[in-house]
Write a protein that binds this DNA or RNA. Structure first.
Lengths: 239, 239
DNA sequence: GTCTATAGCCAGATAGAC
DNA sequence: GTCTATCTGGCTATAGAC
C-alpha cells in the first residue's frame, strides 16, 4: 500500500512538473498576465478541468512559478558564491553578479516574472519572500566574509541617519555583523545590479551597449569597489 | 469651412485624449498586456468599434501610451536639468534623478509600461526611441556641462577596449564631446539609476528600505561621484 | 484523477446601416 | 463617426459521470 502511494505521489509530482514546465514555456509567448490554464492543458493533452487537481487556481500556478524562479536564480547565485570561496572579494562579488546575469539572460521570461512589472491583480503571498532574498543574501555573504577576513575597506562618509537606521535594523534582522554604512551601500548596489540586468534583458541597451558582457563585468566590479570590497592585483584602485 | 475643420479637429483630439486617459486609468487595474479596447470604450460610453476611428488597433493605442509616458518622464527630467543650470554637477545629477523617481512614483503603471517587462507580443516601433532617450540625454547633459566647466574629474582607470569602443561610437552618434571612459560610466549609472527606481516602484524595498527618499538621494549622489562629477561643500569627497 | 458539458464571462476586429 | 450585429475566438471555474 505504501508502494502504491509512492507511485501515486511520483505520478503526481511528475504531472505537476510537466504543468509547470509547459506554463514556463508559455510565459515566453504570452506573458505572466495572460498565462492560461486552458492553453497549458491543451498543450499537455489534458482537459482544463484536470489541472485544478494540481493547482487550485491560476494564481497558485503563478505563485509556484515565481517561487521556482527565485529559487533557481538564488541557487545559481549561491553556487557562484560557494565556487569562489577563498578568492578575493571583488572576484566573488563579480562572480555572483555574473551568475545572476547569466541566469536572467538564459531565462528572460522567468526573470521578467520576478524582476519585471508586477503581475496586475496578483498579490505575492508570503511564501515568496524567502526565496526572493537568496540573491541579496549571497551578495551580503561576500561582504561579510571580506569583513571577517579584514579585506573590507570602511567608508569614510556616514550616510544620513534614517538610512543608517534602516541598515542597522536590516543587519539585526538578518543577524549579519557588518558596519551599517556598508550594509546601506550594499542594498543600493543590490538594486543597481538589477538595473544593469534589467536594461540588458529588457532591451534598453540596444544600439547603446554592444560589448555587454565586458560592460557588465566592469560595472559590477565598480559596484564592488564602491562598497569597499578590495581586490589584489596590478595596483590598488586608489594609488 | 476652415472653422468647421478646426472644430472637427478639436473634437478629434479631445476624444483621442479621453481615450488615452481612460486607457491609462485601466493600465492600473489590468496591466499593459490586458489593456482592452472594449473596456475603454465601455467606460467612455462608446461602442468598441468606434475606437477604431482613433486607433487602428490595440497596439497603436499602446504605442501612443508608451510615447506619452516617455515624453512625460523626459519632460520632467529636462525641467529638472534646466532648473538647476549653474548649480554644481552633483546637485544637478541628483535633481534629474529625483525627478525621474518622483515621476515614477507618481505614475507607477505608466512607469511599468516603459521600464518594466516588455509587453508580450508587442514590438515597440521606431517612434518610441526618440522619446525614450530623453532621460539619458538629460543625464549626459549634466556631465557635458561639467566637462565644459572643468568640474569633471577624469577617471584614472581605462575600461576594457570593447567598452571603450561602444562609448566612443555612442559619443559620436550623439555628438557629445565627453571622454569615452566617462561616457561608459555614465551609461552604467543610467541603468543603475533605473535599478533603484524599479526596486522602489515594484516593491522590492518593502521591509528592507524605509527611508526611501534619503536612501535614493544618497545612492544617486554616490553614482554621480563615481562618474567623476564633483560637488563643492564641506570637504572634498577624497580628502 | 480524468472526462464531458456547461455557465457566464471576455476579447479583437469587421461589415454595413445611418 | 457612431451605431448594431456578427464572426471567431478566448477564458476561469464548477458539476457530475465514470
Amino acid at each position: 500500500m505504501s508502494a502504491i502511494r509512492g507511485a501515486r505521489e511520483r505520478a503526481r509530482t511528475e504531472v505537476t512538473a510537466a504543468i509547470k514546465e509547459e506554463a514556463r514555456r508559455q510565459l515566453a509567448d504570452r506573458g505572466a498576465g495572460e498565462l492560461s490554464l486552458r492553453a497549458v492543458a491543451r498543450e499537455l493533452g489534458m482537459v482544463s478541468s484536470a489541472l485544478y487537481r494540481y493547482f487550485p487556481s491560476r494564481d497558485d500556478l503563478l505563485t509556484a512559478l515565481i517561487i521556482d524562479a527565485y529559487d533557481a536564480l538564488g541557487a545559481d547565485a549561491e553556487a557562484a558564491l560557494a565556487a569562489t570561496e577563498g578568492s578575493d572579494p571583488v572576484s566573488r562579488w563579480t562572480a555572483v553578479c555574473r551568475a545572476v546575469r547569466a541566469w536572467a539572460l538564459g531565462h528572460p521570461h522567468e526573470y521578467a516574472l520576478i524582476y519585471g512589472s508586477p503581475v496586475p491583480g496578483y498579490a505575492a503571498p508570503q511564501d515568496t519572500t524567502g526565496p526572493a532574498a537568496r540573491v541579496g543574501l549571497a551578495l551580503i555573504a561576500v561582504a561579510r566574509d571580506a569583513h571577517a577576513a579584514g579585506t573590507l575597506r570602511e567608508t569614510s562618509e556616514e550616510p544620513p541617519a534614517a538610512v543608517l537606521a534602516d541598515a542597522r535594523s536590516l543587519g539585526e534582522r538578518l543577524d549579519v555583523r557588518l558596519p551599517p554604512p556598508v550594509l546601506g551601500k550594499l542594498v543600493a548596489a543590490w538594486a543597481q545590479l538589477f538595473g544593469l540586468v534589467n536594461f540588458e534583458v529588457f532591451g534598453q541597451f540596444q544600439r547603446v551597449v554592444e560589448a555587454r558582457e565586458e560592460f557588465f563585468t566592469r560595472a559590477v566590479a565598480d559596484l564592488a569597489r564602491g562598497i569597499g570590497l578590495t581586490a589584489p592585483g596590478p595596483g590598488p584602485s586608489r594609488p
